[in-house]
Simulated scan of single mutants.
Amino acid sequence: MIQFVVLINRQGKVRLTKWYSPYAQKERTKIVRELSGLVLSRGPKLCNFVDWRGLKIVYRRYASLYFCMCIDQDDNELEVLEIVHHFVEILDRYFGSVCELDLIFNFHKAYYILDEILIAGELQESSKKTVARLIAAQDSLVEAAKEQESSISNIIAQATK
């Protein structure tokens, strides 16, 4: 099971976190600080798996972001690397060559994509087409809600004149 997902940049700033196990806020802050120091200090030629506190950290660097997932000791590291790559491919497909700024300004969409792929720390959807279809459906619902909101605002503005 995946315990948590953390995306950090090369300076150690957190861009996305998702916790699947209960941790207090103080503990989360401590974990992120410890994890960023651990991952950022490793050389590029070293293995992408690190034993940490009786768990394993699986990470991969894409451009300026490190995608880190913490898993149980007996989980398959290569499968988790594939999940990380799957997540990045879907982000790339949605944003068109995803970058750090896409995650900063559209964090809610990145969380939605992650929630479509992982539920309770387990892989739920492995099909990129299915995830893309679900995201497109959600985007169309958001657009419809925005249009409805603007039409209601126009009606109210005209009624108050």
Rank of each mutant, 00 (worst) to 15 (best):
M1L: 06
I2W: 02
Q3L: 09
F4A: 09
V5L: 11
L7D: 02
I8M: 05
I8T: 05
N9F: 03
N9W: 01
N9G: 04
R10M: 09
R15C: 08
K18A: 10
K18F: 07
W19K: 00
Y20I: 00
Y20R: 01
S21P: 02
S21H: 09
P22G: 03
P22N: 15
Q25K: 13
E27Y: 01
T29D: 14
I31W: 03
R33G: 08
E34K: 13
E34C: 07
L35I: 11
S36P: 06
S36D: 02
G37Q: 10
G37N: 15
G37S: 10
L38R: 11
V39T: 00
L40T: 01
G43P: 04
G43K: 14
L46R: 11
N48K: 13
F49Y: 03
V50P: 03
R53Q: 14
G54M: 00
L55T: 12
L55W: 05
K56R: 09
V58R: 00
R60V: 06
R61T: 00
R61Q: 11
S64D: 04
L65A: 11
L65T: 03
Y66P: 05
Y66S: 04
Y66K: 05
C68F: 04
C68D: 03
M69E: 05
D72Q: 11
D72N: 13
D72I: 03
D74T: 02
N76F: 04
E77I: 11
L78W: 01
E79Y: 08
E82C: 09
E82M: 12
E82F: 11
H85Y: 08
H85F: 08
F87Y: 15
V88I: 15
V88G: 01
E89T: 12
I90E: 03
L91A: 11
L91N: 06
D92L: 00
R93A: 10
R93L: 09
Y94T: 05
F95W: 04
F95Q: 01
G96C: 07
S97R: 04
C99I: 10
L101D: 06
D102C: 05
I104A: 04
F105S: 02
F107S: 10
F107E: 10
K109D: 13
K109C: 09
K109H: 10
A110S: 15
Y111G: 08
L114Y: 03
I119T: 15
A120D: 15
G121R: 07
G121P: 05
E122V: 12
L123H: 05
Q124D: 10
Q124A: 08
E125F: 01
E125A: 07
K128C: 04
K128D: 02
K129W: 01
A132Y: 02
R133D: 13
R133V: 06
R133F: 07
I135F: 05
A136S: 15
A137Y: 10
A137Q: 14
Q138P: 02
Q138W: 08
D139Y: 04
S140T: 13
V142M: 12
E143Y: 09
A144E: 13
E147T: 06
E147S: 08
E149S: 14
S151L: 13
S151P: 00
S151K: 14
I152T: 06
S153N: 10
N154V: 06
I156P: 05
Q158G: 11
A159Y: 14
A159V: 08
A159F: 14
K161H: 12
